[in-house]
Design a protein around this nucleic acid. Structure first.
Length: 294
DNA sequence: ATGGTACCCTGAGAGC
DNA sequence: TGCTCTCAGGGTACCA
């Protein structure tokens, strides 16, 4: 389900359950997702306390007390749900109902004495779980090349100009490149470009002056990337195809889509009489208004 | 190095 | 009903 706002929403849903809980048992219902699970995965994490649940780009980071970090990615169809176990003082046997594509179950002992299960479900299995040590996290293959967080101090127009300089790739592809800005995906790239009035087909280098300075368009694009991500996080992300958050509730940013999945609809920009169209770039759908995006 | 394509996998929905 | 086709919020391997 996940671009950055959806992953951040998952993190916020899971954190109150997972943080300070102890992993009593880790159940793996198959040997791999996209990649094989780490060697001795269950043995290593069982008995460890979770210090915090973090996020970098679209990755969830489970910080364990013995310096291990579990690196989790949801791919296209990964989701988590939590199931309450016994509450303190009660002897209630939690009957966890395992459903199709439930690949990983964290059995947790909570800080308040209760129990809970956190279940990872992923029909397409493009997601993965890897592990490293805390002091090597920044050097990890999946983390080391990630660019700036869209909502963070490192991202500004100068940074974007440096990343886009000389790039012949279209803006759509450049914004999806996780080495420049990390965490954007197909939805929010389309939305940010529409908000900026920029064509997804425009070459990335056209937002950079010969001097290397950002153009006014670059300044605008950075601002819109920041805003659309902030708004989406505030809305609890986008819920497509009935995907729900960890507590079963739905994010609602999908109701704010101006262009994503809106082909054939009128452009919502005031005084624009264009029609949203769908094209394919890098093998993926791009939605934009050919009238007001150039 | 850079940019484009094929591919990993399952399920939902459209059209016949 | 059931078949076939396309498409899906991601990233990587491989090609020119």
């Amino acid at each position: 389900m996940p671009e950055l706002p959806e992953v951040e929403t998952v993190r916020r849903g899971l954190a109150p359950v997972m943080e300070n809980a102890t992993i009593q048992e880790l159940v793996l219902n198959r040997p791999n997702l996209r990649f094989p699970f780490p060697e001795n995965f269950a043995n290593i994490v069982q008995g460890q306390k979770i210090l915090s649940l973090g996020r970098r780009a679209k990755y969830l980071l489970v910080d364990l007390e013995q310096d291990h970090v579990i690196i989790m990615h949801l791919g296209m169809s990964g989701s988590f749900r939590t199931v309450d176990g016994s509450t303190p003082g009660k002897f209630h046997h939690a009957h966890t109902k395992i459903e199709a594509h439930d690949h990983v179950v964290f059995h947790l002992k909570l800080s308040d004495g209760g129990t809970a299960q956190v279940i990872y479900n992923d029909p397409r299995r493009f997601g993965f779980m890897l592990m490293t040590s805390r002091n090597r996290l920044d050097q990890h293959k999946m983390i080391r090349d990630l660019g700036a967080e869209p909502v963070g101090n490192a991202l500004d127009a100068d940074y974007l100009a440096a990343g886009f300089a000389g790039k012949n790739a279209p803006l759509k592809a450049a914004l999806l490149d996780q080495r420049i800005i990390a965490g954007l995906g197909n939805i929010y790239v389309c939305e940010a470009l529409w908000r900026s009035g920029l064509s997804p087909k425009r070459k990335a280098r056209t937002l950079v002056l010969k001097s290397g300075q950002p153009t006014a368009r670059a300044v605008l694009l950075v601002e819109n990337v920041r805003q659309v991500i902030q708004e989406a996080i505030a809305a609890g992300g986008s819920s497509l195809r009935d995907h729900s958050q960890t507590d079963g509730s739905l994010g609602y940013f999908q109701h704010s889509f101006a262009v994503y999945d809106q082909q054939g609809n009128p452009c919502p920009k005031p005084h624009c009489d264009g029609t949203i169209s769908r094209i394919v770039q890098s093998g993926r759908s791009t939605f934009y208004c050919p009238r007001c995006q150039s």
